[in-house]
Nucleic acid binder design. Structure first.
Lengths: 222, 222
DNA sequence: ATAAAATATGACTAGCGGTCAACTATGACC
DNA sequence: GGTCATAGTTGACCGCTAGTCATATTTTAT
C-alpha cells in the first residue's frame, strides 16, 4: 500500500458534500460576526450557534479561532495569481494592474473597520497563522515583483528600480493604509487607497511623466 | 471653598513618590515581558509578580492590560514635539528631521517583533485605547504637516504637494513598515525603515532630485 | 444487516482579565 | 504622641472563554 487512498476512491459522497457545506457555514457565520462585532468580541460559541452546529464541531474544521481567518490567504493567493496573469496577458498597463490588485487585496479587510481589525489581530496573535501568512506574503510579493519586471520591459515602469524593492514598498503602502484606516476609520478605505496607490504608482512610473511642473521653487525664501 | 486643593498643598509626599515608583515598576515590568513574550502571552499576574505587587494593584494604576501600552502615546507626543522644534530651529533640513522622526517613532515598537505585535494588538483590541490613539495620531500628523510646510517655505520640499497629504503618506509608510516587519521580521527593522523613509523623502523632495535612489541599473540582465 | 470509520456533540477544564470587600499605611490635625 | 479619615494594597473570587474529549450519532463498506 503505497497510495493511502483509503475510502475516498470515486465517491462524491454525501459526507464530502456535508463536510464542505458545514465548513462553509462556519466560515461565513464567522465572517459576518467578525465584520459586525469584531474578532475579540465574537466567541466560538456564537459562531457555531449562527452556523447551526455544536461548539465542538468548530474545532473539527479549524484548529483555533484565528485559523478561520487563515482561510483568507487562499483568496488573496487567487487574486494575486489572477492579476499576474492579467499583467502577462498585456491587455492592461502594469501600473493599472497593480492598482486593481491593491483594490482586490483590500476588498475583504475593507468590508468594515471591525473586519480589518479582526484580520490584523488574528494574524498577529497566532503563531501558526502568522507563519503561514508570512510565507504566502513573500511569494505574493515575488509575483508582484514579476509584474513590475514585466512593466519595466514594456517601459511602463522606470527601470532604474529593483522590482523586489518596489514590490516591498507597494506591500508596505497597502498594509499601512489598511492598518491606519482600521485604527481610525474616518473616510472610506477606498479613498485612502486611491491616494496611496496613486503615490506609489506615480513613484514607480518612468521619470518622463514629470508630474511636478508647477513646483514654485522658493529658493530665495531660505 | 472654590479651589479643592484638598491635601496636596506643598508636599512632595512619601505617598506621591511611592505611587510614581509603583507605576514605573509595573510599567517597566510589563514592557520587558511584552518585549520578550508578547502581549497576549503575558498575564497581568506575571506583570505584577515581576513588579513585586499584588494583582489587584495593577488595576489601581491601569484600567486594563491594554492601557499600559497607552502610555507610549506620551512618549510619541514628546518625540513629535521635539522634532517639530528641531524643524523650527532650522539647523537641519526638514527631510533630515523627518528621517530622524521616523526612527524615533519606531524606536519603541522596534525593540522586538513581539513588542511591535504587542503595541499593534493593544491598540487594535481596546476601544478606549484606540480612541485616544487616533486623536493623538491626528494631532501628531498635524505637527508633521507643519514641519513639511516649513520645509516647503525653505525650498527643501516640493511645494506642489499638500502638506497634510504628505504627512498622511509618511504616516502610512511608517505604519506599514512596522506592521509588515512585525508579521515577518526577516531583517532588522532599521533596514526596512531606511528604505521606506528614503522613498518617501525622495518623493517629497523638490523635482530637482535626480533619478531616484542609488540603485544599480540591472540593465538587461534578465 | 452489521461492523467500522467519520463526524457531531456538549459537558467539562484550565486559565484569564477584571472586581471588590477587607485590610494596612500615610499624614493632617490636635 | 495619639487619633482618625483617606489613599492605597491585597488576594480570594467571579464570569467568561478557547479548547478538549468521551460518548453518541450518522454514513459507508462489506
Amino acid at each position: 500500500m503505497v497510495t493511502k487512498k483509503k475510502s475516498r476512491p470515486a465517491s462524491p459522497g454525501l459526507r464530502q458534500r456535508r463536510r464542505l457545506q458545514t465548513e462553509e457555514k462556519i466560515f461565513l457565520s464567522a465572517m459576518h460576526l467578525f465584520r459586525d462585532k469584531g474578532f475579540v468580541q465574537t466567541t466560538v460559541e456564537e459562531i457555531t450557534r449562527a452556523a447551526g452546529v455544536a461548539k465542538g464541531t468548530f474545532f473539527n474544521y479549524f484548529p483555533s479561532k484565528e485559523h478561520v481567518l487563515g482561510f483568507l490567504i487562499e483568496r488573496q493567493k487567487g487574486a494575486v495569481a489572477a492579476h499576474l496573469e492579467m499583467a502577462r496577458a498585456g491587455q492592461l498597463p502594469v501600473p493599472e494592474v497593480l492598482k486593481r490588485l491593491g483594490h482586490a487585496l483590500t476588498l475583504f479587510p475593507g468590508k468594515s473597520p471591525q473586519m480589518a481589525r479582526s484580520v490584523i489581530a488574528a494574524f498577529l496573535a497566532n503563531e501558526d497563522v502568522r507563519a503561514r501568512i508570512s510565507v504566502e506574503m513573500s511569494t505574493g510579493r515575488q509575483a508582484v515583483a514579476e509584474m513590475i519586471r514585466l512593466g519595466q520591459q514594456r517601459g511602463q515602469i522606470r527601470s532604474d528600480a529593483v522590482p523586489a524593492q518596489l514590490a516591498h514598498n507597494f506591500h508596505r503602502a497597502l498594509i499601512g493604509t489598511v492598518v491606519l484606516w482600521a485604527l481610525d476609520p474616518v473616510s472610506p478605505l477606498k479613498k485612502h487607497l486611491e491616494e496611496t496607490i496613486a503615490l506609489v504608482v506615480a513613484g514607480a512610473c518612468p521619470a518622463a511623466q514629470a508630474p511636478c511642473p508647477p513646483a514654485r521653487r522658493k529658493k530665495e525664501a531660505q
